[in-house]
């Protein structure tokens, strides 16, 4: 036995030992297999990349957001300067902030496409209603995160978008004034506004977003992905044939009550 093949078998043994050890204590292999070997529809695989692209872009948001926090300062005196530092002085600052900015833009576009795809393929139909609802919640969270993130730059664009947003909010029936005072942290825009938008953008809504993403994925796995009717045409053909046969059978022995066609009666 050569030295190389001996080392290889030793490494394989060590790997197997670690895998067994982890499997015994944490069930890691079972979980991995459960995640990785789930059967998914063969047709329409490319459609599903819309969802995973959304997940990927949100992950980029979390990653670069955490990185930006190493330099960003959420005060009216320093916010603009700290971003100026990130853009001009920090190593790869342009790239890190660029990824945060551009993936946010792509994210909203991809979410729109993802949503349109689910709508037009009827992916929200029973038993997947709940996942549609969770998806709409995710959409709202992402839009509000995008809006609050805009203010953090404390530049003209961010400030005036916030002013207009607050003014729009002030027109809400009954609760308008209270809502915007809560968001601005007072009766005018100022340092409190930046602090609050920072808290909402960085902690509150991402913390809410993460579990909803988890629920979205769990429900997806529970009911399976649904991209298009095309993936089910053989099963639908079988169903239609059975229904035709049953109809024929009923026609043959007229008068006999037939119990096996409830699902058809439901539809009509």
């Amino acid at each position: 036995m050569g030295a190389i093949s001996k080392a290889r078998s030793q490494a394989a043994d060590a790997g197997k030992f670690v895998a067994d050890w982890m499997e015994h204590r944490a069930g890691v292999i079972t979980i991995m297999e459960h995640f990785l070997y789930e059967p998914v529809p063969k047709r329409g695989a490319w459609i599903y990349t819309l969802g995973s692209a959304t997940l990927f872009l949100i992950t980029l948001q979390f990653l670069t957001g955490i990185l930006l926090l190493f330099y960003y300062v959420p005060t009216t005196d320093h916010a603009w300067n700290s971003i100026y530092y990130i853009m001009n002085e920090a190593y790869f600052g342009t790239l890190i902030r660029g990824i945060h900015y551009w993936s946010a833009n792509f994210l909203l576009a991809v979410i729109g496409l993802h949503m349109a795809q689910v709508f037009f393929s009827g992916g929200y139909k029973a038993p997947r209603e709940l996942n549609w609802i969770v998806g709409v919640v995710l959409l709202l969270l992402v839009v509000i995160i995008a809006f609050t993130g805009y203010a953090l730059r404390w530049d003209q664009d961010g400030l005036w978008a916030t002013v207009v947003g607050m003014k729009i909010g002030s027109y809400s029936p009954f609760v308008g004034a209270y809502t915007i005072q809560f968001l601005m942290g007072g009766d005018t825009i100022g340092p409190a506004t930046l602090s609050r938008f920072f808290a909402i953008h960085v902690w509150l809504l991402p913390a809410a977003l993460a579990p909803f993403i988890g629920i979205h994925l769990y429900l997806l796995r529970r009911h399976g992905v649904f991209g298009d009717e095309m993936e089910y045409r053989e099963r639908m053909a079988k169903l239609q044939e059975r229904q035709r046969l049953e109809e024929y059978e009923e026609y043959e022995d007229d008068g006999e009550p037939y119990v096996g066609r409830r699902d058809r009666a439901d539809r009509d």
Partner: peptide, 17 residues
Amino acid sequence: FILGPVIDVNVRGESDV
């Protein structure tokens, strides 16, 4: 804690300016 400013403005009639 987080509704403080709303209470200040509407109950105590305070303003930031």
